[in-house]
């Protein structure tokens, strides 16, 4: 496939991500300005970080005047899951993915982009990822700017309903393979049960850390109980 075709395919696959980000980052923009940041600073954070939970935690650190070490540690804890995702994606890259492309595309490894990329059956090309990253970053940054700039203009019922967009997309990624493979279904259910337990019984556990704990436990169990045969 040509670069243009790849890029366009990535753009199209990224539309739900961009739309979801637009609504989620809108909330982040409102929150950042409330915490005392300027519109420009809030937007700059979204442009350079591209991560929801990490940014929210980072704004808290800034607002409370925390140290830079605390900032680094908070980001490391919440975002370490991206290292797992990057490792997982590194296994399905096309040959055209040379080092500079890897360094550039790695910037855009988010939960959602990872989810869509991981569900592709063909090897990932740089321009496919760039298309998806471009539209996602666009939605994320624009939403932040709008939220920071004009936060309370959207009717509450609309902004509330937009909150489910990304989760709906997650379900659309995990349900079809769960239907086809019993092993995936087991891992998905086990991870969800653990997550519910963490959420209600260990509320002090940070969201990012809870996700790592649940996902790693469920995946280790899956790898032990249902080892996969070599794929072609």
């Amino acid at each position: 496939m040509s670069r243009q075709t790849d890029f366009r395919k990535g753009l199209v696959h990224g539309i739900p991500i961009g739309l979801g980000y637009l609504s989620v980052s809108f909330g982040f923009g409102i929150m950042a300005v409330k915490s005392g940041l300027s519109v420009a600073e809030s937007t700059l954070i979204s442009l350079t970080n591209l991560t929801s939970a990490g940014q929210a935690a980072g704004v808290n650190v800034i607002a409370s005047g925390g140290t830079l070490a605390e900032m680094a540690l908070v980001q490391l804890t919440i975002n370490i899951r991206y290292a797992l995702m990057a490792l997982s994606l590194s296994q399905k890259l096309d040959k055209s993915f040379c080092f500079p492309h890897r360094m550039l595309a790695s910037f855009g490894i988010t939960d959602e982009i990872f989810g869509v990329c991981a569900s592709q059956t063909s090897p990932l090309t740089p321009f496919y990822m760039y298309g998806m990253i471009l539209i996602s970053v666009f939605g994320w940054v624009l939403g932040t700017f709008l939220g920071a700039y004009a936060g309370e203009l959207l009717p509450p019922a609309v902004s509330a309903a937009l909150g489910i967009v990304l989760y709906g997309m997650f379900l659309a990624i995990i349900v079809p393979p769960s239907r086809k493979e019993k092993s995936v279904l087991c891992v998905v259910l086990f991870s969800a049960i653990l997550s519910v337990i963490c959420y209600y019984l260990i509320p002090k556990l940070s969201g990012g850390f809870a996700v790592i704990l649940c996902a790693v436990t469920a995946s280790v169990l899956g790898a032990v109980l249902f080892p996969r045969e070599e794929e072609a």
């Binding site: 797992l84 569900s119 997650f170 891992v187 998905v188 259910l189 991870s191 649940c214 899956g222």
Partner: peptide
């Protein structure tokens, strides 16, 4: 399995 487990834990 990791991607499905991550998305599941994030969703539920």
């Amino acid at each position: 399995y990791i991607p499905y487990a991550v998305l599941s834990a994030m969703t539920i």
